[in-house]
């Protein structure tokens, strides 16, 4: 699975406006909503599911990266949103450092292998420190999308 298979191009943000964990999650879910996902009260429900997962342990895995995620019945395929917070977000990360790059994954129920495949492809990219640095410096969603596609071509 490639990142461009599940990252929603219209749900990429190069300049997150929120700076607190919950607000950041809300903004990313709203980007997915604006891209045509979810209806009615579903966005709020998705936010709650992600926050519930964060309560178990932070998905801020260190080195400025977080992968907030949840299973939710409102999607029939795995979808992802990407956001960059140029000034960093406190995310209760494992290394206590702020988060600059976020990959959000919402997966349908009962498709654990799809979720693992998405984590595999996100991890493959995030292991590349140059890629992460380029993401941090990206100025537009288009630039982030191009970085993702270029990385896939090179990988």
């Amino acid at each position: 699975m490639r990142m461009s298979d599940f990252v929603v191009r219209e749900a990429i943000s190069a300049q997150l406006t929120a700076s607190q964990k919950e607000a950041v999650i809300r903004e990313m879910v709203d980007n997915l909503r604006a891209a045509g996902f979810f209806k009615g009260s579903e966005p709020e429900d998705v936010v709650k599911a992600i926050l519930k997962r964060e309560m178990l342990s932070s998905t801020g895995i260190g080195e400025g990266v977080a992968i907030p995620h949840a299973k939710h019945g409102s999607v029939d395929r795995l979808v992802g949103a990407v956001a960059v917070a140029p000034s960093g977000v406190a995310f209760d990360s494992v290394d206590n450092n702020p988060v600059f790059v976020l990959f959000m994954l919402i997966s349908p129920q009962e498709r654990p292998s799809e979720h693992l495949r998405a984590l595999e492809s996100v991890s493959r990219c995030l292991k590349d420190k140059n890629f992460v640095q380029s993401l941090k410096e990206a100025k537009s969603p288009q630039q982030i999308w191009d970085l993702i596609c270029n990385h896939e071509r090179g990988a």
């Binding site: 654990p112 693992l116 495949r117 984590l119 595999e120 996100v122 991890s123």
Partner: peptide, 12 residues
């Protein structure tokens, strides 16, 4: 390494 272990892709 979280990233290295996730990259293994290990379903049931």
């Amino acid at each position: 390494s979280m990233l290295a272990l996730l990259e293994l892709y290990s379903p049931a």
